[in-house]
Design a protein around this nucleic acid. Structure first.
Lengths: 212, 212
DNA sequence: TAGATTGTTAATCGATTAACAATC
DNA sequence: TAGATTGTTAATCGATTAACAATC
């Protein structure tokens, strides 16, 4: 293994491999080959081995990978060995759903506080998470050790929410609002545009004339 | 313009460009340059022009692009000139949120029916959308002209939901469950893994030692 | 040992960027 | 005309794939 720049796509795939490994582990499978992983997640075996090779040698030639070991290594690589506390901005429909979503906690992400500008929501609870005023963001980030931010506000409010998060010291943000936002360059920003996913489908469907 | 394979990434960027153009149009801006677009969405101007060049010549040298025209062209390219009816599988928290999410309807995607296996949910409504039994999927797909499917069920049920959608004739599917699924090769499948997005953040945060 | 599978290199493939003639 | 900006080509960059020696 030589140290070199790891493609972003490799990181995304590592999370996908880890999903498969969790399933395999749950089924009691002890060992998997790169081909097993590849078949399940829809990539080539070479791709799997290359992705892992950026970080070390985790397998045994002739045998494959020990499921539990590889899972542990990938979790370490992704920084998932501890709990990450999350600030959620926006207590609307999407925000409420994300607050309830079990998949986060299952992977070590805990939404510890929700923030909104709507006075009728401030002071309420979603599940057992408090909804605070945006004015309390700085304070709560420190108090609750919030490290990540999720923006689930309307498009017009997205940039402001991002600035507030950055100002409060949050270094990793996911933006669910359908608008491009900018942040300091030492902050990691990812965009999830739900409608955009559907739009890629419609492009492909009409392209293939399936729909003509 | 020569006809050649269009990268998937180009399609995703077109949706992002269209978001910016909508904002610009709302502000009354008549013309934008590739540099304007690029700055806003975080790519290079050459990238913008290349992406558009796959589909035609939409600009005027020395001037730029007419906002309304370019928006219309991109919508046409993406197949957004008509309404797409959507089947949503799963009436849990995530499903409920997606059912309420305004961003879909705003872009011509209408969730017309929700399906679940839970008898306590079947027959109820989420917003004004009926929740049906999975047994009714085939029938409703025809009756309501459903073209796209969204899978928002637990991981263990995802593959079964996918098969049901494919069997019902759905040709484009978005999978929100954190599990890889397979579909017929004439079906377009996209995966949205919410926790995976956070995991890419945590990788980057520990990588940069911001967090050491 | 023979069969299987890794880790790694080199070759291929594809996407992005830079540059510039065309032209408004 | 001079300045601006497109459309497009060629060059660069990066990621994927194929192949195979290493080795269990």
């Amino acid at each position: 293994m030589k140290t070199m720049k790891v493609p972003e796509a490799t990181i995304s795939r590592l999370t996908i491999y880890s999903r498969f490994l969790e399933q395999a582990d749950a089924k009691g499978i002890l060992t998997v080959s790169s081909t097993d992983i590849a078949k399940n997640v829809g990539v080539t075996p070479a791709q799997v081995r290359k992705d892992l090779a950026y970080f070390g040698e985790f397998g045994t030639r002739g045998i494959g990978y020990t499921v539990k070991d590889l899972l542990k290594h990938i979790r370490k690589i992704l920084g998932l060995t501890k709990i990450w506390n999350v600030a959620l901005i926006g207590a609307g429909n999407l925000g409420r759903a994300l607050a309830h979503y079990k998949g986060f906690a299952k992977r070590g992400f805990e939404i510890k506080a929700i923030f909104d500008v709507d006075p009728s929501k401030i002071g309420s609870k979603i599940g057992n998470i408090n909804v605070y005023s945006m004015d309390e963001l700085n304070e709560k980030v420190k108090e609750l050790d919030l490290r990540l931010g999720i923006i689930a506000v309307p498009a017009v409010a997205a940039q402001e929410a991002a600035w507030a998060l950055v100002k409060a010291g949050i270094k990793g943000i996911i933006n669910f609002a359908p608008r491009s936002i900018i942040v300091d360059e030492n902050v990691i920003l990812r965009r999830v545009d739900l409608a955009a996913e559907l739009e890629v489908l419609t492009y492909n469907l009409q392209e293939c004339k399936i729909d003509a």
